[in-house]
Amino acid sequence: MELLIALAIGTLTGCGVWLALRAHTFPVVLGLTLLSYAVNLFLFATGRLVVGRPPVIAAGAAYTDPLPQALVLTAIVIGFAMTAFVIMLALRARAELGNDHVDGKNE
């Protein structure tokens, strides 16, 4: 499972970085979204991967770390809002600059 999670995070981050380096706003927004997915998965794994345990402290029992889940929840909410904002901004840039190049110039 560690390998699977690590590969998933690595693939998402790699694709995200590659897309964020593109010259048009749509791939950049997609890249940012992929990066935020990658970081959410990554945060989830920072409490170490544990299977079949309760998420909060039960008497004496082993438990999964609840803190990363709280962090992921916060990160998802913030990432969601930021993605919505950057999409609106990209649309506005498309309307005001006349094209979707990140520097606003025609090629």
Binding site: T46, L89, E96
Partner: peptide, 30 residues
């Protein structure tokens, strides 16, 4: 137009910065 162009760069760079901040916080917690 100029403000939007500069704003787009600013927003995208800071979103990448925020993602990196989350990676850093995660690494430190881990």
């Amino acid at each position: 137009a100029e403000r939007t162009r500069a704003g787009l760069h600013y927003v995208v760079l800071n979103l990448i910065g925020s993602t990196a901040f989350l990676f850093a916080a995660g690494l430190i917690y881990a």
